[in-house]
Design a protein around this nucleic acid. Structure first.
Length: 794
DNA sequence: GCCAACGTTGGC
DNA sequence: GCCAACGTTGGC
């Protein structure tokens, strides 16, 4: 933790001793801070260093300068919470107070990300590790403080083994050191072994409780706007030893600042927390990087209006979310609530906004459906009827409105874009689905949150139910589709295999592919089967593409590469259907999985032919297979896939394309049960019987680009003389012919070969013996082919 | 305290 | 451009 703070704080090559220097650096900080006081410094990010979209990316010098300014702000050089200094960045602060339009919210959001990435970039995985010899030679330890979220300030401890084992919990550590070290008396958090009488757990809990209480109660909702969710805010909240100063008389909530909160906490529990989390002594220079609010710098305690009871009180107590003032009484009451998710509500619908004026439930949103499906459940307000006022910002304060809720003028006064979006979301006849609206709303909330540099509080935005509805980390789940409702990991996909519980190394850390939301998961996380025919009527694919900042679209040229090229599991929206199919195949191979589907067939893939319909239905309706919305009876038509097929210049590429056409035709055809068609390397069109219980479980039909086909049984090619070949043309050019072949194959069984030898029956492995000329497939009347029977007689 | 998994970075 | 890796954070 300390180390990370240092690594985040110090510019390359900066010595700790230098960091602690003051003088001109303070001035630099002051200058920076003054810049943050500008009324609208973010209007043109280019003019505001550190606020422009990641200027450091393009200008490493900017990073260095910025770092230097921070690190030389007169702070202790090796301050563990130094990285939080970023949050003191006046740029960030001005961001908090910025009254830019909602159209700029995205930009603001990006700024936040940039600031975050700024920190992340400076955090090198190899940095911040301390030797931890108590665990053995080569072991290292690292502490990381959570910089945001409800668990802000919480300290996570990681260990790095000599062989690169990354350990994130005691359980993992115990597993890694099993047989090598007894960790019974090992305090994971501190990284020390305790004597038998030491009660490390109790101490740890106590400290943690105090710690969190402090961070909760002392943060300001305004602080949150400029980094109160980061350890830096906690830094500011760190109590100053000694008596309070006379500066604790700040009275205006809008001129309150972190200093007030910071200096307010000079009591025992803070001291304890400080000691336990090794807070350095606050520096007087800390007063420098105070965030400005409307250009004013306040300090000390404030006279606040309790957001809960309305009473006025003095101090810097805030609710558990550290977002609103909360008097000590209400705070005590709130502490009595054990469950961390219990929140008190403050938001009162304004009665004037669009949401409040909406008196009819839409019947389509998640909350409406929730009520319909679970009448006994707690009633949830239709999402279209939400009061929208929380997203209104106070043009006077530069923060989200804290004005009386009944004083709710027109909404989104300067946020026309957002107004439009919200208005649109009220319209049931949108071309986008409710889910999409839902997603939009969430993203907007996130953007607004960033725009105002503060979180939109759960209890403000929510009615009383879906507190997590707008949470950023929930954007990948609609909560309604089959995948979201599925609670069981398949245990076979690459993401499951990666999980420690399945013996994986926990590197991917992704949810089971089959549990990835079919609507909102990142597209590349979806099961690759879903990537086959996914286009909606407007050409869109389910799932969300990767962020724009990371990826750009592929050119169409790339998409038409030959199947033998390194195909990828792209998530680009404009991917062609044909490539999706190729991706499917490619994906399976790239992941070392067989191209056959049965190994992942315990969910949607148990009936491949239906899967085709399922996919196609999704393509047709633009919706996914989310429970009742699926209608396998609706059989879509998919239009021409390859135009190259019409090219008179025949080529291998054309043949491949023709094969693709056949593949997609098969996908639209009702196949014999549990037969599934995919494209595999070659390219070849592969038809596989997915059911292990089928007599054709080991039988595969492979069709080459020229439509010549052959059959394999247990990976052995069927002899060309096999009767089944006589029944069909040498080339399978139509789906009908393919289906007929499969139906014909279903009439066969696999030759059982020679009976096992006696020795094998006595415990040894059973190896099936066959004649070299085994026919492999025999009619149902037979069990062993003629050639094997002949061999048996010998 | 621990696990699950989201979102981003940086290497390739 | 892509994705493995993992820092981070929410949930239980």
């Amino acid at each position: 933790m300390n180390e990370e703070g240092v690594e985040n704080q110090l510019p390359p090559g900066t010595e700790p001793g230098v960091v602690g220097d003051t003088g001109p650096n303070i001035n630099a900080k002051e200058t920076q801070e003054t810049a943050g006081e500008a009324p609208a410094p973010l209007d043109d990010p280019k003019e505001t260093p550190g606020v422009s979209p990641n200027p450091e990316d393009d200008n490493p010098a900017a990073t260095e300068i910025k770092d230097e300014v921070k690190s030389t702000a007169g702070e202790p050089g090796m301050d563990w919470f130094e990285p939080l200094e970023d949050d003191d960045d006046p740029d960030t602060e001005s961001l908090a107070g910025e009254t830019e339009s909602v159209a700029g919210s995205e930009r603001a959001m990006k700024k936040i990300y940039m600031l975050q990435s700024h920190r992340r970039k400076r955090s090198h995985p190899d940095e911040g590790w301390e030797d931890c010899p108590v665990l053995g030679e080569g072991w290292k330890r690292k502490e990381v403080v959570r910089r945001s979220g409800s668990s802000i300030g919480q300290k996570d401890v990681y260990y790095l083994g000599p062989c690169g084992e990354r350990v994130r919990s005691r359980v993992e550590l115990t597993t890694v050191l099993q047989g090598q070290l007894d960790l019974t008396s090992f305090d994971y958090k501190s990284g020390k072994f305790y004597d038998g009488d030491a009660p490390p757990v109790r101490v740890r809990n106590r400290v943690k409780r105090k710690y969190r209480e402090r961070s909760s109660s002392e943060s300001s909702w305004m602080e949150r706007g400029d980094g109160a969710e980061t350890p830096d805010s906690y830094h500011r909240l760190t109590p100053t030893p000694g008596p309070k100063t006379s500066q604790q008389n700040q009275t205006n909530v809008y001129t309150n600042n972190v200093t007030g909160a910071y200096q307010q906490g000079s009591h025992a529990e803070e001291s304890l927390a400080e000691e336990k989390i090794r807070l350095p002594p606050p520096s007087s220079s800390r007063t420098l990087p105070l965030p400005s609010i409307k250009g004013e710098f306040g300090s000390e305690d404030s006279i606040l209006d309790c957001a809960r009871c309305g009473s006025t009180f003095s101090g810097t107590w805030y609710d558990k979310q550290r977002k609103r003032p909360c008097c000590p009484t209400c705070w005590a009451l709130s502490k009595a609530k054990v469950h961390p998710m219990i929140r008190f509500r403050k938001w009162i619908p304004c009665g004037q906004c669009v949401g409040c004026h909406n008196s009819v439930n839409c019947g389509q949103c998640a909350n409406c459906k929730h009520g319909l499906q679970s009448p006994e459940a707690k009633k949830r307000l239709c999402r279209k009827r939400r009061c929208m006022c929380p997203i209104r910002k106070d043009p006077e304060s530069k923060f989200l409105s804290q004005m009386p809720y009944d004083d709710c003028p027109e909404m989104y006064d300067d946020n026309s874009n957002f107004q439009n979006e919200i208005t649109d979301s009220q319209q049931p006849s949108l071309k986008s689905s409710d889910t999409e609206n839902f997603s939009v709303n969430m993203d907007l909330n996130a953007d607004l949150s960033a725009d105002f540099n503060m979180d939109l509080d759960e209890d403000e935005m929510s009615t009383d139910d879906d507190d997590d509805w707008h949470k950023k980390r929930k954007r990948r789940s609609c909560g309604e589709c089959k995948a979201c409702l599925c609670r069981k990991d398949c245990g076979t996909c690459d993401f499951c295999i990666d999980k420690p519980k399945f013996g994986g190394s926990n590197k991917k850390r992704q949810k089971c592919r089959l549990r990835q939301c079919q609507r909102q998961a990142m597209r590349h996380l979806l099961p690759f089967q879903m990537g086959e025919i996914e286009h909606g009527p407007d050409g869109t694919l389910p799932g969300r593409p990767k962020p724009q900042y990371t990826y750009s679209r592929k050119s169409s040229f790339k998409k038409n590469r030959g199947p033998n090229t390194s195909l990828d599991l792209t998530d680009n929206e404009d991917d062609e259907i044909n490539l999706q199919a190729l991706n499917h195949s490619d994906y399976g191979m790239r992941n070392g999985l067989p191209d056959r589907a049965p190994h992942i067939s315990n969910h949607n893939y148990s009936q491949p032919s239906h899967q085709s319909q399922w996919d196609a239905e999704r393509s047709h309706t633009g919706r996914n297979a989310s429970g009742v919305e699926e209608n396998e009876e609706d059989f879509p038509m998919i239009t021409q896939i390859f135009s190259l097929a019409d090219n008179p210049n025949e080529s291998s590429v054309d043949n491949e394309n023709q094969l693709m056409k056949l593949l997609h035709t098969l996908r639209l055809t009702i196949m014999p049960i549990l037969w599934y068609a995919i494209m595999v390397e070659g390219p070849q069109l592969q038809l596989t019987q997915c059911s292990k219980q089928s007599s054709m479980a080991d039988t595969v039909v492979l069709i080459n680009p020229g439509f010549y086909y052959y059959v394999t049984v247990q990976k052995q090619p069927l002899l060309p003389t096999h009767p089944v070949y006589d029944k069909f043309p040498s080339r399978l050019t139509t789906a009908t012919e393919v289906v007929n072949l499969l139906l014909a194959l279903e009439r066969y069984e696999v030759c059982r070969g020679l009976p096992p030898k006696e020795a094998m029956l006595q415990g040894g492995p059973i190896v099936l013996e066959r004649a070299s000329t085994c026919e492999f497939l025999v009619t149902n009347k037979e069990t062993v082919c003629a050639n094997c029977r002949a061999l048996k007689r010998l």
